[in-house]
Design a protein around this nucleic acid. Structure first.
Lengths: 150, 150
DNA sequence: TATTGTTATACTCTATAACTATA
DNA sequence: TATAGTTATAGAGTATAACAATA
């Protein structure tokens, strides 16, 4: 199967291929824990924001309340987190359980190893450059300050 | 919502964020054509390999025969391609239709513009560096030649 | 009125399994 | 036997719409 020359020169396509390569290894690491990249991200956000509610978590993950519900249900069922009483009667507070904390610590180590494996052909300087350039992707900022007239 | 420091320093996570940023814009460009990134990739592969069969297409896209079937059905329904008689009676040959060719030409232009928009904060040299570094991601090659003993 | 959690439902993309025709 | 296409079915992950309880 021949490759297409247009496809190969599109940055978006190159990004996708690289992303799939990375994510494939990460998924393999996460699988024994019963987690996916999205679930891991949720756990790390809950760890950084103990007591947050489901809706806020959903916003941070760019999914809606209903999807956040299913995600939280899965994390509760997996014994990673629990719902506690929240700031008022209609919100609940999400907290890591001890089991979740230890699993998470192990996983971060394993994922750093995965990163290292998948960037093994890059020097430390190249790794840093790649990281920085990825952070610069996205639409250009129009108007640096909110009060600029034109 | 606070970010997690582990999360922010993982290359895989940085990749995902950058990829989602890129892909969001690309999807917006593709939507009026009734296409997704996967369908566009399929069309470009069919263009580069006229007369290929569904199974080969599926392999190139890392999806199985059944999923390739649905993808091809959608492309046929959209008037982009057609199934013609293949090399033998159990394979069919996929070919772009004129409509597909013209749409594809327009789309490649629009996607290059999307790439440019999303990498607007990168210099030409940085763009080239990013492209090259992305290509170096992936597991290290063990054994350069197939016959090396250790 | 607006918001949070919840449930029901549906859509997309993927996979597995089984069947048919052909090689 | 093995392979290509096809169909049926199922499992993630997402979304919308509606409802109850609470703010």
């Amino acid at each position: 199967m021949k490759q297409d020359s247009d496809l190969e020169t599109l940055l978006g396509y190159q990004m996708q291929r690289a992303f799939l390569t990375m994510t494939e290894d990460a998924r393999r690491v996460l699988e024994p824990y019963g987690l996916t990249p999205a679930k891991l991200t949720a756990l790390l956000l809950i760890r950084a924001n103990p007591g947050c509610d489901q809706t806020a978590l959903g916003r941070a993950l760019s999914i809606n309340r209903s999807s956040a519900m299913k995600l939280v249900n899965a994390l509760v069922a997996g014994g990673f987190i629990e719902r506690r009483a929240g700031r008022n009667l209609r919100t609940n507070a999400l907290h890591l359980l001890p089991h979740g904390e230890t699993q998470l610590a192990d996983l971060v180590v394993a994922l750093r190893e995965s990163d290292r494996r998948m960037s093994a052909r890059l020097s430390a300087a190249e790794h840093a450059t790649l990281f920085a350039l990825l952070g610069k992707l996205g639409p250009a900022r129009t108007r640096r300050t909110p009060h600029e007239p034109a």
